Amino acid sequence: NPFGNGHINATYKVEILNSDVSFILQKINTNVFTNPQNIVHNHLAIQKSIIPADIEIPHLIRSNKGKFLYLDENHNIWRMMNFIKNSYSVEIVEDRDQAYEAGKGFGWFLKACSGLNPSIFYEAIQDFHSLTFRLNQLNEAITKNKSNRVSDSKSIIGFYKEREHKLLELEESFETNKIPVRVVHNDTKINNLLYRNKKAIAVIDLDTVGPGNVFFDYGDAIRTITNTADEDEKDLSKVDFNLEMFESFTKGYLLQTKSVLVDKELNLLAYAPFYMTFIIGIRFLSDYLNGDIYYKTKYPKHNLTRSLVQRKLIEKMESKFESMQYIIEKYSY
């Protein structure tokens, strides 16, 4: 039976008659993951290293031919994992307890992977969180102006341009190894976490796992958990940065990770939500200027609306930045 609401791979739950054992079967989207063997390699590297405790990851299962991937007659590529019983995911964080557990869950993952060598992992999607790459895409979209939308978008283009220099300085600290390269999840949406009895019990959807840094995981989780509105909310007055959710997630995250993070990471961690929100904002804007060729849209200015929401979220973060820094320092030591 079809299972979940993922946007990339086709996912099914397989139930065995007269048994309580179930599995997750997925057809891998090879348009996104062009080398499925690489994501299997990454998954197995973690699977062999992480010892399950209160929180776990799904495990890949071999086919009857002993392989972790199966090629069908239509050249589709499939893989199977164990189904984690009595669990559920959420699409929106409903309260501070859920946010705290999310922080614990994703923090556990970073800590559990802290002893792994990032150099043995493949980059699942090249330049996925590269600010330089995304800015080059934006600049190209502005220059080409394929859909004649630049003149009507000068205000929001200017907003992002005013802030790019500061965030490029942050990215430079990644590239000069001032910020350690780590094995990270790279896609810490709240629905990539499973709960049982209101406790985080599993981190799932490991296709993007690979080299990165703590800013990617912490920043994207904060971006999605703290936004008080939908990602495409037209009424921008509804968009705010929920500082209580920020504190709850941060408390859980640093409870797990403060023993492995270095001072430089902790000192700059408050910039992580800006970095990730900025990147998704300019991705939406670039797609709008290019004529909406990447993200699915429901109306002509849908991508512009999405980018405006990210802009408003950044503005709200800026107004609460000192509080964000204080909260991170509070739970760092």
Score class of each variant (00 low, 15 high):
N1W: 03
I8C: 07
T11G: 08
D20M: 08
I24Y: 11
L25Y: 08
I28G: 08
T30D: 01
N35G: 00
I39Q: 11
H41A: 10
H43E: 01
I51P: 00
H59Y: 12
L60F: 09
R62N: 03
N64M: 06
F68Y: 15
L69M: 08
L69I: 10
N74W: 00
H75Q: 15
N76G: 11
W78C: 10
K85S: 14
N86I: 01
S89T: 14
V90M: 12
V90Q: 11
F106C: 05
C113W: 04
S114P: 02
P118M: 06
K146Y: 05
S155G: 00
G158D: 07
Y160N: 03
E162D: 14
L167D: 04
E169H: 09
E171P: 08
T176A: 01
V183H: 06
N186E: 00
D187Y: 07
N191C: 08
V203W: 05
I204S: 04
D207M: 10
G212P: 05
V214H: 01
F215Q: 04
Y218Q: 06
T224C: 07
T226I: 07
E233D: 13
K234L: 12
N242Y: 05
F246P: 01
S248P: 02
Y253K: 06
Y253D: 01
S259K: 14
D263H: 11
D263F: 10
A270W: 13
A272N: 03
M276D: 02
F284K: 07
Y294K: 09
Y294C: 08
K296L: 04
M317W: 01
F321V: 02
F321M: 12
K330W: 03
